[in-house]
């Protein structure tokens, strides 16, 4: 026969009554100084085990028995709660905790590397074009306020660049209008960017690099690839999703620090951006072929940019400007040049 000590609460008052509970085959016999009751075991409900917590039995009339005697309760009710008992056992063993940690690590890694980019594509497509355009305007405004000044290009130079971009766009199904802007950004050097909302931003230095028309077209094709694939928006969505994932994992510690959110996402972003560069390159090869140009022009463009930036590094540039160096965040430039030429 199973016996245990418990506190009896009748649910009508907060009075605590110490009782002794004896279990027969069918009934729980509760006896104390002011309480003598018996209830059927099969009509009594029990909460699930958790660590050292006391157990609450709810008797058929709604009154409660609280007991710290987990062993007695497991012996009486354990067969009813096979899953919960198993879970409590998992939680009690360090070996299982370490397995959980390993599983968690692998799952989070898979979600971050495969799940988040997969989900970001349809989500980015859901963002209205107007939102994307306003993000692009904000990005341009912040550049205008810090790194960039109005372009010093002549009107005909600008017109020529726009004509080259227009040629790359021939016969392309564009979800958003693609336009070209030029700025004089000393700290950035020769470069081009795809802003969200369909703007290709070209620095004056790029226009002055003396690239052939075909090479410039390749640069534009690459940037158009970023725009067509919504890379800026996808990057934003991925960063938020990553933060959401880490936030969910951190759960109740949400208030502790926001730094813990951003750290892993920053580390992952460099990985995401490399994938996007490859995607834009592949788009460019295809596009260049379609408009009758050679994909190897992208290789020439990358090589020219790399040379120009290496020269820029040699000359006396402020260390604080180096962060913005576009190519330094893409260490596999040689690889990309090789692929552009091999894919001819």
């Amino acid at each position: 026969m199973i016996e245990f000590n418990a506190d009896y609460f009748d649910g009508r008052s907060a009075e605590r009554r110490a009782v002794r509970v004896r279990a027969s085959d069918t009934h729980l016999h509760v006896s104390g100084q002011t309480v003598q009751v018996a209830h059927r075991i099969d009509e009594t409900s029990v909460d699930t085990p958790l660590a050292r917590l006391h157990r609450v039995l709810t008797l058929p009339d709604g009154t409660e028995l609280h007991t710290a005697d987990n062993a007695a309760i497991d012996a009486l009710f354990g067969h009813r709660l096979p899953i919960a008992t198993g879970l409590a056992r998992l939680e009690s063993l360090w070996s299982r905790a370490l397995i959980a940690l390993a599983v968690l690590g692998v799952c989070i890694w898979m979600l971050m590397v495969y799940g988040v980019p997969l989900l970001a594509r349809p989500l980015a497509a859901l963002v209205p074009v107007t939102v994307e355009q306003s993000l692009g305007r904000q990005a341009l405004a912040s550049l205008d306020g810090s790194l960039c000044k109005p372009s010093t290009l002549e009107a005909h130079e600008l017109e020529h660049l726009r004509t080259l971009l227009g040629r790359v766009l021939v016969g392309l199904d564009q979800p958003q209008a693609i336009t070209l802007e030029a700025r004089n950004c000393k700290g950035i050097g020769p470069n081009a960017f795809a802003l969200p909302g369909g703007t290709v931003l070209v620095t004056d230095a790029l226009a002055h690099l003396g690239m052939s028309d075909e090479t410039l077209s390749a640069v534009f094709a690459h940037e158009v690839g970023h725009i067509q694939r919504q890379h800026a928006m996808r990057m934003a969505v991925q960063t938020s999703l990553g933060a959401l994932l880490v936030g969910t994992v951190m759960g109740d510690a949400a208030s502790i620090t926001s730094l813990a959110y951003t750290l892993p996402t920053v580390l992952l972003n460099s990985g995401y951006s490399r994938t996007m560069e490859t995607e834009a390159d592949e788009f460019a090869y295809e596009r260049l072929r379609e408009v009758g140009l050679s994909p190897s022009a992208l290789g020439d463009a990358l090589e020219a940019l790399m040379r120009a930036h290496e020269k820029g590094e040699d000359s006396a540039r402020q260390p604080s400007e180096r962060w913005s160096d576009y190519l330094s965040s893409h260490p596999a430039v040689e690889e990309r040049i090789r692929r552009a030429r091999g894919g001819d």
Binding site: S92, L93, R96, A97, A100, L101, L104
Partner: peptide, 20 residues
């Protein structure tokens, strides 16, 4: 009376199950 090592095991097991 909560204990950090006890709660760590509960937390990590439940987190792994949540992610899985």
């Amino acid at each position: 009376t909560g204990l950090a090592n006890e709660y760590f095991r509960i937390w990590i097991v439940n987190l792994a199950l949540t992610v899985v």
